[in-house]
Design a protein around this nucleic acid. Structure first.
Lengths: 122, 122
DNA sequence: CGGAATCCGGCCCGATACTG
DNA sequence: CAGTATCGGGCCGGATTCCG
């Protein structure tokens, strides 16, 4: 099916798959808060990152957004959620090993973004 | 100014710059059409990529969005615009050398996205 | 042909109030 | 403490129409 090469049809076909993959990536990297949360968790690994602590330390985030974004990240296996049986209950969030895999990707975004800012202002 | 290291303040400070750089990158990679346009232009380099040809070949895009996105890309030096003095006038778009620099970045997004899809469905 | 102008719906996100 | 419910604004993007 991918053998017809007459007019560059192969590139167009694979292009769709690649665009879908990019979309998947951007859905996680693209929001306003997901990367902030991931980076914060990574900078505070080893601490008890409770919901309230995160809300205090991640400047400007509302409880609603923090809750929603943490659920998204957990569904994507990037963040783990642990209910501690304290009184009253606290919940501890931490980045997963798999979650660390986003940082090489974000690093390329950082480098390109920095370079682009130079390019544009020149 | 970045020497105060008591509570991890350095990471937080540089974090802001990096998040700004990421935001810059995502503003270009993030929209619905910019990457499709860039990739299409790259797959059809050497052809006369007129506005109408792009609108025909980039499936689903409206004139309004194509116009707007091309302007954005041109302002960011990623795409060049050439008015041909035909009658009636046609305009030719092509990707710039600098524009090619986005593809290494998108490639990391493709790889992570493909891997993530595997990870999630497992 | 290559746009610009306008209207409009959906969704992301913030503010506020409430629950177990 | 750890969320959920509700309301609403803003912006992205689609459909349509008009201009040089």
């Amino acid at each position: 099916m991918a053998t017809i090469n007459i007019n560059g049809n192969i590139q167009e076909a694979s292009c769709d798959q690649e665009l879908a993959a990019i979309k998947d990536s951007l859905e996680i990297l693209g929001g306003k808060w997901k990367l902030r949360i991931m980076r914060h968790l990574n900078n505070h690994v080893g601490e008890k990152n409770t919901f309230k602590k995160l809300q205090r330390e991640i400047e400007g985030i509302s409880a609603k957004m923090l809750s929603k974004e943490l659920q998204d990240l957990e569904m994507n296996l990037l963040v783990s959620r642990t209910v501690m049986d304290t009184r009253p209950v606290t919940v501890n969030y931490s980045i997963t090993d798999y979650g660390l895999s986003v940082f090489p990707v974000t690093e390329t975004l950082v480098q390109w973004g920095l370079n682009h800012r130079q390019k544009i202002k020149a």
